[in-house]
Nucleic acid binder design. Structure first.
Length: 423
DNA sequence: TCTCCACAGGAAATTGGGGGTT
DNA sequence: AACCCCCAATTTCCTGTGGAGA
């Protein structure tokens, strides 16, 4: 947006007081900081790239590439790395007469079973718009084999976020063996799975591990030093020279490294810091901007998560909120459940059994809304969880109030909380 | 050391809803 | 209309467990 607005003939530049005319120059090329910007080099991942290359190499020799699994948390460069190598391989294949390569790259996002993933792959390969359905699983697999048979001789299927299928992994067993089992005659098929979940591997069934596991590569989280060099490379292009104070990049790196070691997160933080400086008309990006950016991003993350809660999750959360206002947190599961029952009663919702509410509470804990600690008070209380609110009470009430299914209860809670000076 | 509380949490069965064919 | 497939959420039933106090 700002990059080519430097024409001297631009009439808007002379408009004094136009709110869109920023008076300070922060960004040189903002697009470098966007989510979809792909770096052309990954110096921090040379070793991993090399391993990927070795695994793909057999494809260049006319047989199937090794099956491959990439592990690592989000923002560790897994997707970028595989894209990079696949592109190189594709380029190479284009130059060779005797290597015909088909690469299908997709994300298993939201496909929670083998059946759905299979349907999804069929859709991707066909390029159609809707997934086949209504048939049994084996027919679905057969349909996929039909599609694959139409492809080139060497087929590589890249499946991002493959962990969403959990332990429902039959497709992963079938696919690499399709040729051996006679479902496919002319193709070499290999599968590259990318997983954000490090435990995914342990939950795979033994036969999948057996048939699919040629090699795996783990992407360890970046440390602060690596994040710093990643950020520096980006910042060189993204920012006007000299606008970043010296401690900005190290601080962004440190924050991100403390958390998940995610490059994505570090870059977001840097970007946001720049935007804040810009909005304040500050000429330099400094440490306080970074801290402000971190708070904003953190709050946004929580808000987004909270808005996407299911009704039952909201009930459970509301129960804990209510207990917090009564100043009875941390509360054990039974207390929360009592509160839950009364709330559901008032709202005329579906009342679930305690076992299930426990699961909801756990999941709220995992998402960072609740703090769940285990405790054991022996013969007096046995071992149990204690839940308390981890997020800001006022913000939580604000967000919950947006939902008109539950706002009557929220309003009451707000008035109680106000009376007690809690918000 | 042994007990026993009050849960935690695994596993299997059930429910209900979406999509389909015949 | 009658029936089939798949699946997430839930219920039902159950065994497992860490430590305070006898």
């Amino acid at each position: 947006m700002s990059g080519d607005g430097t024409d001297s003939g631009n009439p808007y530049e002379t408009l004094d007081g136009n709110p869109y005319g920023a008076s300070v120059e922060i960004f040189a090329d903002e697009s470098v900081l966007k989510e979809d910007w792909k770096p052309e080099k990954l110096p921090e991942r040379e070793g991993e790239l090399e391993e990927i290359r070795n695994a793909l190499a057999p494809a260049t020799r006319g047989v199937n590439a090794h099956n491959l699994f990439l592990y690592g948390k989000t923002g560790q460069g897994k997707t970028v790395a595989i894209d990079h190598e696949i592109n190189l391989l594709q380029e190479y294949a284009d130059d060779q007469d005797d290597l015909n390569l088909s690469v299908t790259k997709t994300s298993a996002n939201n496909q929670t079973t083998s059946y759905q993933l299979c349907a999804h792959l069929i859709k991707e390969i066909r390029g159609g718009t809707k997934k086949p359905s209504g048939i049994d699983q084996q027919s679905m697999f057969d349909l996929l084999y039909d599609e694959i048979s139409e492809l080139e001789d060497t087929v590589i299927i890249v499946i991002d976020e493959i962990d969403t299928i959990g332990s429902n992994d039959e497709l992963l067993y079938e696919l690499p063996r399709a040729r051996k089992n006679g479902h496919i005659e002319d193709q070499w098929v290999s599968v590259i799975g990318i997983s954000n979940n490090l435990q995914f591997r342990d939950n795979l069934s033994p036969k999948v591990k057996d048939s699919l596991y040629d090699s795996e590569i783990e992407f360890a989280p970046y440390d602060a030093t690596q994040l710093t060099s990643i950020l520096e490379r980006r910042a060189d292009r993204a920012f006007v020279e000299g606008v970043l104070e010296d401690d900005v990049i190290p601080l962004c790196s440190a924050f991100a490294a403390q958390d998940e070691g995610s490059a994505r997160q570090a870059i977001r933080l840097l970007y946001k810091s720049g935007e804040i400086a810009l909005n304040h008309d500050d000429e330099l990006v400094c440490e306080s901007h970074v801290r402000e950016a971190r708070d904003i991003l953190e709050r946004k993350r929580i808000e987004e998560g909270m808005r996407s809660l299911t009704t039952q999750d909201q009930f459970a959360l509301l129960s804990v909120v209510s207990l917090a206002i009564d100043e009875e947190t941390p509360a054990r599961t039974r207390q929360v459940y009592q509160k839950y029952k009364s709330i559901v009663d008032r709202l005329d919702g579906n009342q679930l059994v305690e076992r299930r509410v426990r699961d909801h509470l756990q999941s709220l804990g995992m998402q960072g809304f609740l703090l769940a600690t285990t405790r054991n008070t022996g013969i007096q209380g046995g071992s149990h969880y204690r839940f308390e609110l981890k997020t800001d009470l006022e913000a939580t009430l604000d967000i919950l109030a947006e939902d008109n299914r539950i706002d009557s209860v929220v309003e009451d809670l707000v008035s109680v909380a106000t009376a007690k000076n809690l918000v």
